[in-house]
Design a protein around this nucleic acid. Structure first.
Length: 567
RNA sequence: GCGCCCGUAGUUCAACGGAUAGAAUAUCAGGCUUCGAACCUGAAGAUAGGGGUUCGAUUCCCUUCGGGCGCACCA
């Protein structure tokens, strides 16, 4: 459902020349009006001065005496509308609980969203956290506007990073005893061990040519399935996977329909490349096999290395083939950091030759860095903040805020508030921008924060528990306060906001919408007593609270955030 | 070297080419016997520099400075 107010004003403006694509805006200051119609486009069509057109329209509307529009006033090239609060309430509050139902649009498609993709044997750090939070929200946005979504997760379980980890393990004194004792340990402890082994193996790899060669030798064993390491490989791989499942995905309210692994595509990847050498798609160069991206304004990339092993590029060719064949999605969104912008251009181009059906259906949803003052996130340097460490730190702050509280399930509430704070902190920044991260101050629990949003819900629920009121407002009271009309106007923009967020693959639009709703709710809350009012006014306000709550909870859901009853 | 991206209050984020550049936080001054003060009210505070295009530029183009990321056998 689209904006009721917008549709109504379009009806009024249509005879004056405004088309269906007319844009409205909200004036920068509330004192200027509730809604505004910029006359630039119309003036151009009429070949007149925008200010003149604005003046004419304002006069015409005032003369007509529209019930919805208390007055229209031309301010420069804008026609500013002061809406009749009562008419707004009548128009908007009638849609009741349906206000936030998923909007099924006509162009319903099946879309695969591939996200998370942590590699096994490596730490799960806050960079991964941004990926998973963005991906989960994107899935929910797409579902909301009517698409069928396949959740995919592509994980690296073969390759050099495993070799580095293994080198680290083999370099650990008494590693066999340690491994044995870890089999009964928690997922967190197992993951910690692997993360440390990876970090030390990784620095050994950079150390000198000798250690580098040793790591490379392990890598070849992994690809060839050498039985000497199979048992250890299987064991440690399962440690990583159960850690992701139990300690990360569940905690972040995410799940996947299909887990893809590099181990299931690398053979086929090599085959695809080899099959496309005779026809000139790929060519041998310095012992490796490359795709000449430079023919298409891109750059060259290696698909098979000189040891005949498929690189990530080749694996991606096989992955795409598998994904399209298994699910036949209209589009695939790969949620991957922006440092791979050029990489994907090359791979998508190569894919057009090896799997022509993919043309125009592969998309890279890129997002910016999460970086610390001391540098960017990298599990290679050890300069990392683990996802779990961050959650723990924020949770501690939340628990401190709750020290005087007597809510029953304190730990569960603190967990939800902490996750909400983190998710919101990440999602409020538009996806393409970097996030400058400081663990002490970046995840706020006051002001423009996830905690503030949950607090809004808790306040509303607290009132509704005291007095549920009638199921709907049968009657609009004679006097509707401006704060009430302002909230209603904002509620009315919910579906348009979600559509835009889904179309742009950017959850931050919903995050901003929600925060703005919270501010408008608070103004209403401060100005309009609910329980102390009476009659139609009271019923209307209780109903308004329910609508605000419904939209707020739907918005939070779209961001992947769970609500609380009290906090 | 070649290419791509970014530079907005002290700090973290906003702003389809459109109005007096919005918020939050930090600072300062106020507000709880009143539906939950994780809140509210007020003050002060910003478009890196220089050119251009336009009726109009934070937004588009050029340039200088500053930062990030790609560019052959990692993922």
């Amino acid at each position: 459902m689209n904006s009721q107010i917008r549709n109504k004003i379009l009806e009024i403006l249509a005879p004056l020349g405004a088309g269906r694509d007319t844009e409205f805006s909200v004036p920068p200051q509330a004192a200027l009006g509730d809604l505004s119609f910029p006359c630039f486009a119309l003036a151009k069509a009429k070949a007149q001065n925008p200010a003149t057109v604005a003046k004419q329209i304002a006069e015409q509307i005032n003369k007509q005496g529209e019930p919805l529009i208390a007055s229209a006033k031309a301010v420069g090239p804008y026609v500013n509308f002061f809406l009749n609060s009562h008419a707004v309430a009548t128009l908007v509050s009638t849609f009741g609980e349906n206000i936030c139902d998923p909007a099924f649009e006509d162009s319903k498609e099946k879309i695969m969203v591939e996200f998370a993709h942590p590699n096994t044997h490596k730490a799960f750090h806050i960079g991964h956290l941004r990926n998973i939070i963005t991906g989960e929200s994107l899935v929910r946005l797409l579902e909301h506007v009517g698409h069928a979504v396949v959740r995919a997760n592509y994980q690296g379980d073969v390759g050099l990073h495993i070799a580095k980890c293994f080198y680290g393990i083999f370099s650990t004194p008494n590693y066999e005893t340690i491994i044995k004792s870890l089999t009964t340990a928690t997922s967190a402890e197992q993951a910690k061990f692997l993360g440390q082994a990876y970090a030390s193996g990784s620095s050994a790899y950079e150390e000198n040519d000798d250690t580098k060669a040793k790591v490379m030798a392990i890598n070849e064993k992994i690809y060839s399935g050498d039985t000497a390491i199979t048992a250890l490989y299987k064991l440690t791989r399962s440690w990583s996977l159960s850690y992701f499942e139990n300690n990360i995905y569940k905690r972040l309210s995410t799940h996947f329909d299909r887990l893809y692994f590099e181990s299931e595509v690398f053979e086929r990847g090599r085959e695809i490349v080899k099959n496309n050498m005779a026809n000139g798609v790929f060519k041998a160069s310095d012992g490796a096999v490359i795709f000449e991206g430079s023919k298409y304004g891109l750059h060259e990339r290696v698909f098979l290395n000189s040891k005949d092993l498929p690189t990530y590029e080749a694996k991606d060719l096989a992955l795409a083939e598998k994904q399209f064949n298994e699910f036949h999605p209209a589009r695939i969104y790969h949620v991957v950091g922006k440092e791979q912008l050029e990489y994907f251009k090359v791979v998508f181009k190569a894919l057009e030759f090896t799997f022509p059906e993919s043309a125009g259906r592969e998309h890279h949803v890129d997002y910016g860095w999460v970086h610390l003052k001391s540098g960017k996130m990298s599990s290679r340097t050890g300069q990392v903040i683990l996802a779990e460490e961050m959650i723990a730190e924020v949770k501690a702050v939340v628990l401190e805020n709750m020290s005087a509280s007597d809510v029953a399930n304190k730990d569960e509430v603190a967990e939800r508030v902490a996750i909400a704070a983190i998710k919101y902190a990440f999602l409020r920044t538009s996806t393409e921008n970097d996030i400058a991260f400081d663990i002490k101050s970046s995840v706020a629990t006051s002001g423009d924060s996830g905690a503030y949003l949950l607090y809004m819900g808790a306040r509303i629920k607290s009132i509704l528990k005291k007095e549920p009121g009638p199921a709907s407002a049968e009657q609009i009271p004679a006097e509707v306060m401006p704060e009430e009309a302002t909230v209603l106007l904002h509620l009315d923009q919910f579906q348009d906001t979600v559509s835009a967020a889904a179309a742009r693959q950017d959850p931050s639009l919903v995050a901003h919408y929600l925060y703005s709703l919270a501010q408008k709710f608070t103004s209403f809350y401060e100005a309009c007593p609910v329980l102390k009012s009476a009659g139609a006014t009271k019923n209307f306000r209780l109903n308004l609270l329910r609508q605000i709550l419904a939209v707020a909870e739907r918005s939070l859901y779209l961001l992947g955030i769970k609500t609380v009853e009290e906090m």
